[in-house]
Design a protein around this nucleic acid. Structure first.
Lengths: 99, 99
DNA sequence: CGAAAGTACTTTGAATTACAAAGTTACTCA
DNA sequence: TGAGTAACTTTGTAATTCAAAGTACTTTCG
């Protein structure tokens, strides 16, 4: 790879969004509150980053009721998985380049 | 490492600043114009990111004249090298965690 | 039934950050 | 003297980020 920095994904350069995606890439589905707990952020802040990822079609949303309470689940899309992989590969190349 | 995301360095999450540091970590010294050429950014933008890294004491500056022209050289500091290593290690851990 | 509480937002507002473009300083060369 | 180069600094604008407050919908409690 010529310049791995060129393959970094703007959307995934943000710590929170990368973390959301890394949770989703390994967990298949994850709900709003668990994500909020794991990341330790306010719900509004989390919602806005999730929305950014959803807008980019990196994840999909399913709203259901669990125990009579609303429960929103997120799932990574194929597009999201590809983008994540590309970004992580670029990171890996950056790391290798400098070690 | 429990959560590698906690070890990411805010200063180095920006693409340009990470790239500047990665050039300096492998090149020992590098001047302003070469950096500008490598990164393909405007001089003003580059100067402001360098200033941020300098303020954080991640690099040091030496001004000389070469061929009767001003020449500013940058060198990574020990502190900068340590911070860079820590950040890259965290990145590596993130990558490993998700592969 | 009405009030309180939980989930998952949306909106608001303020602070920070990023960037291009223009201006500046200092020096050199024709 | 006038143009040119290096390395900024300043300016102004746009984008980003975040906490906090507000909202919609639903369930549970008294």
């Amino acid at each position: 790879m010529k310049n791995p920095f060129d393959h970094l994904d703007k959307m995934l350069e943000h710590r929170l969004r990368l973390q959301i995606m890394s949770v989703l890439v390994t967990n298949d589905v994850f709900d709003f509150n668990s994500l909020k707990e794991v990341l330790g952020v306010t719900d509004g802040n989390l919602a806005s980053h999730i929305k950014a990822l959803e807008k980019e079609k990196y994840l999909s949303v399913t709203k259901t009721f669990v125990d009579r309470k609303p429960n929103t689940k997120y799932k990574i899309t194929e597009r999201g998985r590809t983008a994540f992989k590309k970004h992580v590969d670029a990171l890996e190349a950056v790391v290798k380049q400098t070690k």
